[in-house]
Design a protein around this nucleic acid. Structure first.
Lengths: 224, 224
DNA sequence: CTCGACAAAATTGTCAACAAAAACGGAGCC
DNA sequence: GGCTCCGTTTTTGTTGACAATTTTGTCGAG
């Protein structure tokens, strides 16, 4: 077991970030128990600190806590991943429409550049690079939309579904189908067409939902 | 100062419920400081317990916490209330559509009865009763939709905007305009028409947003 | 051999006390 | 008179220990 995490900065707020990172990076696998004393030793913090961190991560949907039974990494099922994507479909279309209304000239250049880099990444077969640009695009659209409430909800949901998202990005052929969808969103936003941008976002997320179901069907061919 | 809150059941989870209730009921006003020691005395719990409760309520969006400066009741501005309503417009329309697809015969009866009771409440001028039925209707639709993720987000947002919602319900003439909107939602869901239900929900929330802005314009006639 | 009761271990919930940081107040200085 | 500096007070952040609960392991009876 690596002890790389036993660093300085026992801090207060850093513990939540550390545990969150460990979860989204896959270091802590779903359903793994998170014993307060263990985490307290692993990071330099006291038990009360990790306890506070676990409470915070619980409300973020990353960990599950039950009375007197401790915490564990929350496992999101396929059904939940689909639900999350449905909510994303609604909120990302809202943000896309808002962004199309408010975008500035400088931001247009930014989005266009992101789009070009995504095209290059796909052309070059750089899957992980494309995945990173993907995240940056969605985040930037949220920021441009200035819909703070929706952005916050979407950020929380992203943390919960990051595992499914990653599995999806690794599917062969997936980037080739998602790239044009992303470019359509960019085009609509940059052209100041809210309705078109919202529709493009809906189409993209519908595609994500289909891919999620397809990926699952491939793993478990028939109902086990 | 009333000491009615210093009850039994110092509990653990009850403290978050107690503080949450105090906030949504208006006992704790926006921007009011929430000193840990004071709350610790007011409710029978220790400081660590109220601290945990404050962290939880922070992630629910009801309180604001800044490093080394303590917690206070979060004040949601008009802009935030509008943002919240925009998100609600998207998610409630999603839930309404899902509910229209999944509703059972028994649930149809339930919703119809709720609608009749709402009509009676408005006819009788029972504003507070109508407000309660209003909440029950929205909650029941969320439950029927079986969209757990959206329901959870909506529940959190409801807590944040309950103050604005309440102010709205008290506006003279408001129930008369919101009642037919609610009945339209009920009709569409009970008739198994998802698209119609979603549209009805959108119309209702758009009306809420307009009313929010109007109510604010009335309080502060010109830009102060 | 299986099932249930009972004890032991592990883990969480709670508390009181200590340390650090920030807000407050007054005296001194320009 | 206003401003800064410094000590006091309040409030939060952290720590360790104790109590309550759950889980685990073991032993005996059927």
């Amino acid at each position: 077991m690596t002890e790389s995490a036993a660093d300085r900065q026992p801090g207060e707020r850093s513990v939540v970030a550390a545990v969150r990172d460990a979860i989204v990076r896959g270091e802590f696998v779903p359903n793994q128990r998170l014993v307060e004393a263990d985490l307290s030793a692993q990071f330099g913090a006291s038990r009360a600190t990790v306890r506070a961190a676990l409470i915070e991560l619980t409300n973020e949907g990353l960990v599950e806590r039950v009375q007197n039974r401790g915490a564990r990494v929350r496992a999101v099922s396929l059904e939940e991943a689909v639900e999350i994507s449905e909510v994303r479909m609604m909120l990302e279309s809202l943000c896309a429409a808002k962004a199309a209304e408010r975008i500035s000239d400088a931001e247009v250049g930014e989005l266009r550049e992101l789009g070009e880099r995504m095209q290059m990444a796909v052309a070059g077969g750089d899957v992980v690079g494309y995945s990173g640009l993907n995240q940056r695009l969605h985040r930037r659209i949220r920021e441009i939309s200035a819909q703070h409430t929706a952005a916050q909800v979407l950020e929380r949901l992203r943390g919960q579904s990051v595992r499914h998202q990653f599995r999806l990005a690794m599917r062969p052929g997936r980037p080739q189908v998602s790239l044009p969808e992303h470019l359509a969103i960019i085009d609509a936003i940059c052209a100041n067409r809210p309705e078109e941008a919202a529709e493009a976002a809906r189409i993209h997320l519908a595609s994500v939902i289909e891919a999620l179901k397809a990926a699952d069907a491939e793993v478990s061919p028939l109902h086990p």
